[in-house]
Nucleic acid binder design. Structure first.
Lengths: 112, 112
DNA sequence: CGTGTAAGGAATTCTGACACG
DNA sequence: CGTGTAAGGAATTCTGACACG
């Protein structure tokens, strides 16, 4: 498991993203302004998107068609993100517990 | 298994490919002329590459540094491709054999 | 053969703004 | 709020060609 590869690499220009999603460049830039997506930039300032950005944009497009406001979409995003983080935190803590009781001894840090 | 996804989708413009590979656009276009890579085009004619194209280009760059000529690189490519196809063919034939003797009967095509 | 470069034109992208509803 | 559009400029990409070794 070492590939954050392909899916998350920001390499696609806005024109291609527009083709891929069916959204106008105006819309794509606006969703960035509303902090729904976060493209990188080339040295000269051209936006570059990843495949996950493209997928997120398609989700956004669906939401928008249902009439959901960009602000609400953003709230949902943040909520989902927090939930993700909490989950990871709980998992880490659980692992810590198990290790403390049954795990391989890592060797005391110093004998004191 | 339905994702020919990310890795093979042609979405990267030549400028980004150049950054990614360290090759000049001139070189990238030349390797296309020598039939080492096959980008797609946007409606207006701009080249679009996939991540596998990028990887292939990096392989090509390595070969070139070793002094291998584009013609030879192409020959090796074709050889490798043929080998791949032969392998698939043999696998298909073997499966056919097994099916014929032990496989589920597919029903005769017609009783004659 | 493999690559650089200047040339000219066409298409892309960018930003900030006005418009509309 | 969300999106279209015209505006002007800068950067990108394209092709065909000449150059060099």
């Amino acid at each position: 498991m070492e590939e954050p590869s392909y899916k998350n690499r920001k390499v696609i220009t806005i024109g291609v993203v527009s083709e891929l999603t069916g959204l106008s460049e105006r819309q794509i830039r606006y969703y960035e302004e509303r902090k729904l997506i976060f493209p990188e930039r080339t040295e000269r300032g051209n936006r570059k998107y990843s495949f996950s950005d493209v997928e997120r944009l398609m989700d956004i497009a669906d939401k928008r068609e249902e009439g959901v406001r960009t602000y609400e979409i953003r709230q949902d995003m943040l909520k989902a993100k927090k939930k993700e983080e909490d989950k990871k935190l709980r998992e880490r803590m659980l692992r810590g517990q198990l290790n403390a009781r049954f795990g391989v001894q890592k060797g005391r840090l110093n004998g004191k």
